[in-house]
Amino acid sequence: MRSRRLAIGAGKMLAVAAIVVWSLFPIGFIVLSSFKPGREIFAVPPELFFEPTFEHYASLWHRWPAFFDGLVNSLVITTGATALAVMASLLAGFAYSRYRGVRFLEGSVMFLIGSRLIPPIVVTLPLFPVVNRLGLNDTHLVLILLYATFFVSLGTLLMRTFIDQVPRELDEAAVLDGARPLTILVKIILPLVAPGMLAVAVFVVVFAWNEFLFAYIFTANHAKTAPLVLSEMISSIDGVDWGVLFAASTVQLLPVLVFVVLMNRFLVAGLTAGATKG
């Protein structure tokens, strides 16, 4: 019995090690390598201990100013898309949770769920000429709208689930005090559903910060996002400068990785509720 328990314990330690290697090795490898001097990046076997250097970060700064513009663009677009998606989802979630039996409203849930089935690349075809004609090509606005839109249906369903959990007695008491619906939403419901709003925000932040396809099609210079600049480094014709690419990747991934780690509770809550509710 005791040996069996020992075996299980050892098996679990092995599993833990395997999980850590699978999940973190690629990330850790890039981050560590970005601090390795010149040729040591290619040392076999990879060296774990080395004199850290910032030379790749320095050449990133000098040779790829576009990357830092890209970071700023990504920040602007991510902030805009997240704010828009969270606000719109909160309002719609409020409508679905608190107004029952309103014509067309119930049916429109199916419409929202159905819209999630349309692959994003499908809408790029007709939107491309329209965006050009409106002069919106290569602007922050077009990506903000696109990123927010592809998460508002999930966001609405999540917000409805969270608002459903706020007891209606609270609303009713406020109505007796003469509060208007919007006041109730902002003053009473909003503070209680903040975790739900964070769950929606995590989805949009991760998506908008990392997205490639829309950025590739709808931006060229002015609104180019960080992932797009990274993709240019990968397919650079004079061969990939791995050190610089690793430095840029590290700068791009660390903020969102830290964000996800800090917000993991909300991410888990959102993923679970999002999958079961539609």
């Binding site: 690629p26 791995w242 791009q252």
Partner: peptide, 23 residues
């Protein structure tokens, strides 16, 4: 460990391609 398993969720396809291409 839960957070460790979640970590790749935060990574962009572009960065992931950079990683795996090099590996």
């Amino acid at each position: 460990m839960l957070v460790v398993v979640l970590a790749p969720y935060a990574i962009s396809e572009v960065t992931a391609v950079a990683m795996w291409r090099f590996l």
